Simulated assay, not measured.
Amino acid sequence: MSDLPPLDPPEGDGSDEALDMAAAEFALGVLDGDERAVAIRRVLAEPGFARSVERWRTHWAQLFDLWPAVEAPDLFARIERSLDRPVEAPIATLALAPPIRSKLWPALAGLSSIAAAGLLVVLVARPVPVPPAPPARPAAPVVAARAPTLVASIDPETAGAATVTAVYDAPAGTLRLTEAKLVGADQSAELWVIPADGTRHSLGLLHARGGTVLTLSRDNRARIAAGAVLAVTVEPIGGSPTGLPTGPVVAKGALAQV
């Protein structure tokens, strides 16, 4: 038994057992292909599913810390020892009565001699064809390593507001976010990335409806990494006029690799 506390049940936002199981598989990294694509779309579209994924990711991380790696047993030595054992006589042979065996073995030996002589004649009389050279196999295409997916749950500071989920598409250099209802109609919600050096860099403005897709500059793409923090501040309409945050932080969350 481990010292790991039991996993808290999913929050009561309509999630059922099937949703929580899909979130666990996505957080563990066992989904691939179409299943992985569906799970990423659900993270963007369903705040409850995104929270469940984050909850499972934290749970798996504790398990990995508690269970050290175990080296696989050496099976080759066991196989070699089993090959050195003497071959036991078949049960059917042992069960034959002595009179039957005395007649059966000479007959089988005679048939084997005839078959061997016939095979020898065929091999001597028939020339052995030279097998054609195997065709050259084309070189396997080099598959580029897939960039890891980064996801963040940007949690609001105000109780009752919806969590904003962000998914970074490294090949396209885009950041996709769910709708952000974090500020009033006479204000703008501006997204910032805070890398390890603690300096805030603007990524763009968020939409209150329909979600947001931000195409990042080359410099900001280099700042998007696991552990970097995404923060949302309240700014005047059109964003910060100074290039730095002018209003309070209303939501934030760290990027994590999936």
Rank of each mutant, 00 (worst) to 15 (best):
M1P: 08
M1I: 12
P6H: 09
P6V: 13
L7C: 09
D8G: 13
D16W: 02
D20M: 04
D20C: 04
A22V: 10
A23T: 02
E25Y: 08
D32V: 12
I40Y: 05
R42V: 05
A50I: 05
S52P: 04
S52Q: 11
W56H: 10
H59L: 00
D65V: 07
D65Q: 09
P68M: 00
P68D: 00
E71F: 00
D74P: 00
D74N: 03
R78L: 07
S82F: 13
L83H: 11
R85Q: 15
P86Q: 14
P86W: 15
V87G: 14
V87H: 13
E88G: 15
I91F: 15
T93V: 15
L96W: 15
A97M: 14
A97G: 13
P98Q: 10
P99D: 11
I100P: 01
S102Y: 09
K103S: 14
P106R: 10
P106S: 04
A107P: 02
A107C: 05
L108R: 13
A109Q: 10
S112V: 14
S112R: 14
S113K: 13
L119P: 00
L123K: 11
V124T: 08
A125T: 03
V130N: 02
P135R: 00
A136L: 04
R137V: 04
P138N: 03
R146E: 08
P148R: 01
T149Y: 07
L150Q: 03
L150A: 00
L150D: 01
A152L: 09
S153E: 09
T158D: 12
G160H: 04
A162E: 07
T163F: 06
A170E: 06
G173I: 03
T174F: 03
R176C: 04
E179Q: 15
K181H: 14
D186I: 07
Q187R: 14
S188F: 06
A189K: 08
L191M: 01
I194T: 13
A196Y: 07
T199H: 05
T199M: 07
R200V: 03
S202H: 05
G204E: 07
G204S: 05
A208V: 07
A208K: 13
R209A: 13
G210C: 02
V213A: 06
R221W: 04
R221V: 06
A222N: 14
R223S: 05
A226R: 04
L230M: 05
V232R: 01
V234F: 08
P236G: 06
P236F: 02
G238P: 02
G239L: 01
L244R: 13
G247T: 00
P248F: 12
P248A: 15
P248V: 14
V249D: 02
A251D: 01
G253M: 00
Q257T: 09
V258P: 02
